[in-house]
C-alpha cells in the first residue's frame, strides 16, 4: 500500500506539471484527468474509497468534461496553441515560479518539522461519512445546496448569448 501511495503521488505531481506547461489545451486537460485519477488512488490508499470514487466521477468526469465542452464551444483555431507558446516565456513565468517555490519550501519546512505519527490504518467508509454529513454537518449540506442552486442560476444568467457585444450595464440590450 505504501508503495502504491508513493507511485500515485509521483504520477500526480508529474501529471500536474504537465498540465501547467502544455500549450495545447486538450493535452493539458488529458493530463489533468491523469492527475485526478492519481489523486483518487492516493485517496484509496489513505482509506477513503468513497472519496476516491467521487474524485473520479466529479473531478475527472464532470468538471473536465464541462471544460472540454466549453473549449469546443469556443471553437479555437491552431493559432491558440501558437499564442500560448508566445505567452509562456521564461521571462514571464520565472518570477511566479520562484515565488511559488518559496511558498512550497516554507510549507515543506512546516510539515517536516512536525513530529507526526503515521496515519491510522482504519478505513472510514461511506456510511460513516453519510452519518456525519446528515448529523453534525446538516447546516453545511444545506448551504452547499443553496450554493449549487445559485451556481446554476448564475451560470444560466451569465451564459446567455446577448445580441449586442457591448457592456450589459451600459447599454440597453436587445430583448432575448
Amino acid at each position: 500500500m505504501e508503495l502504491t501511495f508513493y507511485i500515485a503521488g509521483a504520477v500526480a505531481i508529474l501529471a500536474t506539471i504537465m498540465v501547467i506547461t502544455r500549450y495545447n489545451m486538450i493535452h493539458a486537460l488529458l493530463y489533468l484527468v491523469v492527475s485526478f485519477l492519481a489523486v483518487a488512488v492516493v485517496f484509496f490508499t489513505l482509506g477513503a474509497p468513497f472519496m476516491a470514487a467521487l474524485e473520479i466521477i466529479i473531478y475527472a468526469g464532470a468538471i473536465v468534461v464541462l471544460i472540454i465542452f466549453v473549449i469546443m464551444m469556443l471553437n479555437l483555431s491552431e493559432d491558440a496553441t501558437q499564442q500560448e507558446k508566445e505567452w509562456l516565456k521564461p521571462s514571464i513565468w520565472i518570477g511566479p515560479a520562484i515565488l511559488s517555490a518559496v511558498l512550497l519550501a516554507e510549507l515543506i519546512y512546516i510539515f517536516t518539522a512536525m513530529d507526526v505519527p503515521t496515519t491510522a490504518t482504519v478505513p472510514v467508509d461511506a456510511k460513516l461519512v453519510g452519518l456525519a454529513l446528515f448529523g453534525p454537518y446538516m447546516l453545511g449540506v444545506q448551504l452547499c445546496g443553496m450554493m449549487l442552486m445559485a451556481g446554476i442560476v448564475g451560470a444560466y444568467h451569465l451564459g446567455r448569448q446577448k445580441k449586442k457585444v457591448t457592456h450589459r450595464f451600459l447599454e440597453k440590450e436587445a430583448a432575448q
Binding site: P96, L99, S100, V102, L103, E106, L107, Y109, I110
Partner: peptide, 12 residues
C-alpha cells in the same frame, strides 16, 4: 501570493 508568503514567513 506575496501576502501569503509574508504571513507564513512571519508565523515561522
Amino acid at each position: 501570493l506575496v501576502g501569503a508568503i509574508l504571513v507564513v514567513t512571519i508565523s515561522l
